[in-house]
């Protein structure tokens, strides 16, 4: 064992152990690590956003537009509308009117712009990326023609891998379609789940349960990965056992 001589590694390792101590019970060391994390993150994000957004996308271009290097704000070339950045800059400042109760209603204007832009982006993105593409992908061929061809071919050579592949594909599609329809029927509440609808919706629950199980398994894998990552850090970077 050859522990690290890096001060930063020691701080990270001790903070990791402080957080792990919560597994035994809540304690001041855990609280210290938690508060430190929140404070440092907030400060870091503010500085980062200032330099990567406000400085590079607003102050920098405005400095060029009004600094005379580009010939002044009215001397624009085609496609160069940097002076217009004053508008988003002003809207951004108006967000801070929330701090003054008498004029806090003004902050709703920039908020309305933000919500409007993101609602538009999200809606069109969802329609193109999820709704249309996913419905399209749900309409799958059962591959009966391919299956018939494969069976015909397998008369010559008793068992062919193409036959099994075609059978496998058809089974996949049948399972997929059954899962899709029965899961959808489970969420149909305009009629009592009795008879054929009852059977279908119960089958739908089974499909949903399988998907929840898979999601749970993946979640476990994610959380265990975090633990592995911390142990790898303690072993390799801090204690340098390996």
């Amino acid at each position: 064992m050859n522990p690290s001589h890096d001060f930063g590694v020691w701080v990270a390792a001790l903070l990791t152990l402080f957080v792990f101590s919560f597994l035994y019970k809540d304690n001041p060391l855990y609280k210290f690590a938690e508060h430190l994390f929140v404070g440092v993150s907030a400060g870091y994000y503010i500085v980062l956003n200032y330099w990567t957004v406000i400085d590079s996308n607003l102050i920098g271009p405005l400095r060029v537009a009004f600094g005379g290097a580009a010939g002044g704000p009215l001397h624009v070339q085609q496609g160069d509308y940097r002076a217009l950045l004053l508008i988003p800059g002003l809207l951004g400042l108006l967000l801070f009117t929330r701090l003054f109760p008498r004029i806090d209603w003004i902050s709703r204007w920039p908020l309305a712009v933000i919500i409007g832009v993101y609602a538009g982006l999200k809606t069109t993105g969802f329609a193109q990326g999820d709704l249309v593409a996913q419905v399209q992908a749900s309409l799958q061929s059962f591959g009966l023609v391919e299956l018939a061809h494969a069976f015909k071919a397998s008369e010559l050579a008793h068992t062919s891998s193409a036959t099994w592949q075609a059978i496998g594909h058809s089974c996949d599609v049948v399972l997929f379609t059954a899962g899709l329809l029965t899961s959808l029927l489970y969420f149909y509440y305009s009629r009592e789940h009795k008879g054929a609808l009852g059977v279908s919706s119960r089958l739908g629950i089974w499909f949903l349960m399988v998907s929840f199980g898979a999601a749970y398994g993946y979640t476990v894998m994610s959380r265990i990965s975090l633990l592995i990552g911390r142990f790898q850090f303690l072993i390799e970077d801090w204690l340098r056992i390996r």
Partner: peptide, 25 residues
């Protein structure tokens, strides 16, 4: 999800993804 919705669908740029296990499903 956002790259698929905003870039793959609109700009037809082929894409692959490596993601955390919790978001894979």
């Amino acid at each position: 999800k956002e790259w698929v919705q905003q870039v793959n669908s609109r700009f037809h740029l082929p894409m692959v993804s490596g993601c955390t296990a919790v978001s894979a499903p």
